[in-house]
Simulated assay, not measured.
Amino acid sequence: MATLYLVSTPIGNLDDVSARATETLRSVRRILAEDTRRTRILTDRVGADATLVSLHAHNERERSEAIVAWLDAGEDLALVTDAGTPLVSDPGGRVVSSVLDAGHDVVPIPGPSAVLAALVASGLPAERFTFLGFPARKGRERERDLERIASAPETTILFESPHRLVRLLEDLGAVCESERRVAVAREVTKLHEEFIRGTLAEVAAYYERRPPKGEVTVVVGAP
């Protein structure tokens, strides 16, 4: 029985890679990577010479069979995402299910998480929270997402692309009370890291004046 390691990688600052993640990446012959070019930067940094195998949303189904075959042959594998913890709003879920069904071990190597980093620095309650991933872009599904956030009894965390951030904040402002608190974490752990905290209206106005760039995580307080 072989092992598939789910390795969390830095979300920006490469110095955040853990000793255990480094050891794991060095120990395997193949690393399943969402973007092999980005992962190569990390493997070069930690001295891992494994073969990088692309694994993304468009090839996950077909890759699963080969991955199970490698494990059946006794080969341990590592799975990484572009940044942060695998499977969290990223591919890999189908692979993990297939690996477990085949009787192999799946072992997490914990590490950086944009979700938790944004939450703990948001200034909002962190005892209970819900993570929604990326909200739907339109239609009834988007309305349901917004309504769910508006009525949630705990802090809600979600991802959004920078060019849709202002619209999200304005749409939330239309369904939440005007003083609902929010924090936007942008480019966390990177050179231009930024946390903007305030009401939905205040933060929307800030980014209307200063269009955001980079990775964005939104933390919304409860009513």
Results as ranks from 00 to 15, higher is better:
P162L: 00
F159W: 14
E194S: 06
S113P: 04
I157P: 14
P153Y: 06
V107L: 10
V182K: 00
A114C: 09
G123W: 02
P162C: 00
R180Y: 03
R180E: 04
I157W: 06
H192Q: 13
T155N: 03
A118Y: 00
A117I: 11
A126F: 07
I109R: 09
E127C: 11
E147D: 11
A117V: 13
K138Y: 02
L169K: 08
E193H: 08
D145T: 09
K138S: 12
G123H: 00
P162W: 00
T189C: 04
V106S: 02
L116V: 11
T189S: 05
K138F: 03
E141Y: 12
A150Y: 06
K138H: 10
P135E: 00
L172M: 02
L165D: 02
I196Y: 07
F195N: 15
R140K: 12
V182S: 01
V106Q: 03
E147A: 14
A121C: 14
V184E: 04
P153F: 08
H192T: 13
E187A: 15
A150N: 06
G133Q: 01
F129V: 02
I157M: 13
I109Q: 08
L168Y: 06
G123D: 00
F129R: 05
E177M: 12
I109N: 05
F134Q: 07
V166C: 02
T130S: 15
S178R: 15
V175R: 12
E177G: 15
P135A: 00
G173R: 09
R140P: 03
P112L: 06
E193S: 11
A150G: 06
F129Y: 08
D105A: 15
E154P: 09
P125D: 06
P112S: 12
E147L: 11
L116N: 03
D145A: 12
L116Y: 05
A185Y: 07
R186S: 14
E179Y: 08
A126D: 10
L172Q: 01
L119C: 09
R167G: 12
V120R: 07
E177L: 13
V182N: 00
S178D: 15
R181Q: 15
L132C: 13
C176R: 01
F159Q: 15
L116K: 00
V107P: 05
L146H: 06
R181F: 09
L169H: 01
A117P: 11
L172W: 07
E143F: 02
A126G: 15
T156A: 03
E193P: 13
P108D: 01
V106M: 07
P112E: 05
K190A: 06
E170R: 15
A150H: 05
V106I: 05
E170F: 12
R128M: 08
E193I: 03
P162M: 00
V175N: 12
E141D: 13
R167H: 12
A185V: 08
F159I: 15
S161V: 13
L168F: 04
R164H: 11
A174I: 09
S178F: 09
A114W: 07
I196N: 09
F134N: 08
R181V: 12
D145P: 07
A174R: 15
G111V: 03
A126N: 13
A183N: 10
T189G: 05
L172C: 03
E143S: 10
V184Q: 02
L168N: 10
H104F: 02
R128T: 14
A152M: 08
S122W: 00
V166S: 01
R181W: 10
P125Y: 04
E187Q: 14
D171H: 14
S113L: 10
F129G: 10
